[in-house]
Design a binder for these strands. Structure first.
Length: 479
RNA sequence: GCCCCUAUCGUCUAGAGGCCUAGGACACAUCCCUUUCACGGAUGCGACACGGGUUCGAAUCCCGUUAGGGGUACCA
């Protein structure tokens, strides 16, 4: 079977993490089976669709490295096909004009609620006479097109993630609206469930892979396939990504769109890896893998049917793993926008210095955006010394040792971390002090911080930029 | 309300009737490395929701309960 799958996002918001994972599952499945991955933008909701969202979705997919083989197609450019199909259904008596007003429908639902019944359309306009239609038209009512849903009836399909799913047509809410009608009386824009089916048929989609929230739509769509005389595709409904509390993930949960994760400094490799792990696992139990590694064995029999909670800790861990596995030059490149964002300009410094800095801070990074903070001390002339911070420098031996070190530093213009280490060691031996007694005061004198990146390379990097000597002098003189 | 889906450590998961004294990863704790933090290494803590069946035997199959999630549009 030729695999043709699609991602069908609607441009009513930024690329959502759930959509991204659906994209991933589609992409992996296509890759695994040598199939085709199609991108189709579902922009029939004209009130909510916006071009900037389309752009955000395209950018997000590109950033993640999720490439598509066909598209992007836009539903608003395929109106003729929908109109044609609506006419076909109308002619064959499978669809009809419904003139109910919004108010009438609201009243219907309200009374159903009182009777503790499921809200649904009662198919009241299914058999309108010509006279009734003309009278509604004369009232100026604007109709919609509804597709007839026969009841009761069992609809079942074999879901690739949850095996057999059974639905009764009774629970579908009555005859469904498939298209609006324009003021001129012409068929207007189609509604989601209908447009999807027409598109999936036209595009030869073999597998519909989408979130669990679409399960109810599948039953409706299968009916449409039948009406159009087409064998439905196979369906796979992976579960939703839940927030840490176990509910549907929302804006309140910190971040929901791919662009936000990008801005926070997550690597696309790590983000992809994490999203796949949320619901799927390779047979060998491997936790770190690339997209292509996953594609080699991805299948729905290993996709969990239960929803997975989003866990920042694990994402952070993965991101750290990927950051540390990056070649230094590559990590340096990826860090660039984050330095820039923090107002730090690295260009005046030698490549070698930049690279040593990158190597020094790499173990401390969880996300790329951490870099400016971790490396802050390298981009100021002097840290903020206070009497409390410099307290450990008051000891006579410490001062002697630091002065000796200062003299040595003054004599050398540039030092490597290894040379700094030797130098410090030599001074410690010469001054007959304990290393532990010197290291902490040295760090404080250099950075005014008690914790930080490895001290010897830090000193070397500071000295290369002529910052170490003045800092030591200032620290010693402000005692 | 009604319909559908789901149910293994705090979290993500392995587990397709005996291999399970339930494995791994994250988190957490302790120790080691490092006279800092981080990284890294080691060890530990920690789960089959509950109740009935089926079976010689059930985390695995069936039913029910409970809990969670999703849906219930002239949104997608």
């Amino acid at each position: 079977m030729t695999v043709r799958v699609r991602l069908a996002p609607s441009p009513t918001g930024n690329l959502h993490i759930g959509t991204a994972r659906t994209a991933l599952f589609n992409w992996l499945y296509a890759r695994r089976h040598g199939g085709t991955f199609i991108l189709r933008v579902e922009d029939t909701d004209r009130e909510r669709s916006r071009d900037e969202y389309t752009q955000n979705i395209l950018d997000g997919l590109a950033w993640l490295g999720i490439t598509y083989d066909e598209g992007p197609f836009f539903q608003t450019q395929r109106r003729d096909r929908y109109t044609e199909t609506v006419h076909d259904l109308l002619e064959r008596g499978l669809a009809y004009y419904c003139y109910c007003t919004e108010t009438e429908l609201e009243e219907l639902r309200a009374s159903q609620k009182v009777q503790k019944l499921a809200p649904r359309y009662d198919n009241r306009h299914r058999h309108l006479t010509v006279e009734q239609r003309q009278s509604f038209e004369a009232e100026g009512r604007r109709p919609v097109i509804r597709f007839k849903i026969a009841e009761p009836r069992e609809i079942r399909w074999h879901d690739l993630v949850r095996d057999d799913v059974v639905w009764n047509s009774r629970d579908l809410g009555g005859d469904m609206v498939i298209a609006r009608v324009e003021e001129s009386g012409a068929i207007g824009l189609p509604l989601y469930n209908f447009a999807v089916v027409v598109d999936d048929i036209d595009m030869g989609i073999s597998h519909v892979i989408r979130g669990e929230d679409h399960i109810a739509n599948t039953a409706k769509q299968i009916l449409l396939y039948e009406a159009l005389g087409v064998t439905p595709p196979l369906f796979a409904h992976p579960p939703l990504i839940l927030n840490p509390q176990g509910a549907k993930i929302s804006k309140r949960d910190g971040a929901t769109s791919v662009s936000e994760f990008r801005a926070m400094g997550y690597l696309p490799e790590a983000f992809n890896n994490y999203m796949i792990l949320l619901g799927w696992s390779p047979s060998n139990g491997q936790e770190l893998f690339s997209l292509s590694e996953a594609a080699e064995q991805f299948d729905f029999d290993r996709v969990n049917a239960a929803g997975a909670r989003f866990d920042w800790d694990k994402l952070n861990w993965l991101n750290g793993q990927y950051i540390r596995s990056l070649p230094l030059t590559e990590l340096g490149d990826r860090l660039k926008p984050f330095w820039q964002n923090a107002g730090i300009d690295l260009t005046p410094y030698p490549e070698s210095w930049q690279q040593e800095l990158t190597a020094l801070i790499a173990p401390s990074l969880t996300v790329l955006a951490d870099a400016p903070k971790v490396a802050a001390t390298f981009f100021v002339d002097f840290p903020d010394y206070t009497p409390e911070i410099l307290e450990p420098l008051r000891s006579e031996v410490v001062q002697t040792a630091l002065r000796a070190l200062l003299d040595e530093l003054n004599r050398r213009e540039s030092l490597t971390a290894a040379e700094v280490n030797e130098l410090v060691q030599a001074q410690i031996t010469a001054q007959k002090v304990k290393k532990g007694a010197v290291m902490k005061p040295l760090r404080l004198a250099l950075t005014a911080e008690s914790h930080g990146t490895e001290l010897m390379p830090t000193l070397a990097l500071l000295h290369q930029r002529q910052l170490a000597v003045p800092r030591l002098e200032k620290a010693l003189s402000s005692l």
